[in-house]
């Protein structure tokens, strides 16, 4: 049973990634950059500076459509 579990494709994929990450050299720096970048992008920029305005300000697609119709016919 245990042998089946440990040789399952999921476990092999897990080990593949685990060992790959462990053996990284320059990759560690790159992953650090990727993680910091994603935190800045999603945790700061998206959250505080780049809301989806129509999703945030309106509850339904009808309201969003009405808003855009109003915007596009009064400029």
């Amino acid at each position: 049973m245990a042998l089946t579990l440990f040789s399952s494709p999921f476990v092999r994929v897990w080990r593949f990634y685990r060992d790959g990450f462990r053996e990284m050299t320059v990759g560690r720096t790159l992953w650090a950059i990727i993680i910091i970048k994603l935190i800045v992008m999603f945790g700061i920029l998206k959250l505080f500076f780049f809301p989806d305005l129509l999703s945030r300000d309106f509850d339904s697609d009808e309201q969003r459509a009405a808003h855009v119709r109003s915007e596009l016919t009064r400029r």
């Binding site: 320059v26 990759g27 790159l30 992953w31 950059i33 990727i34 970048k37 994603l38 992008m41 920029l45 998206k46 500076f49 780049f50 809301p51 989806d52 305005l53 129509l54 999703s55 969003r64 459509a65 855009v68 915007e71 596009l72």
Partner: peptide
């Protein structure tokens, strides 16, 4: 290639953020 990929990856997502915030009329239209 890996260095360039890692630094550049997801930078395009910022353009999609801008669609929703700066270009919301366009995004809906």
């Amino acid at each position: 290639f890996g260095i360039n990929f890692a630094i550049g990856v997801a930078t395009g997502l910022i353009l999609e953020f801008e669609f929703g915030t700066n270009w919301s009329n366009y995004s809906w239209f």
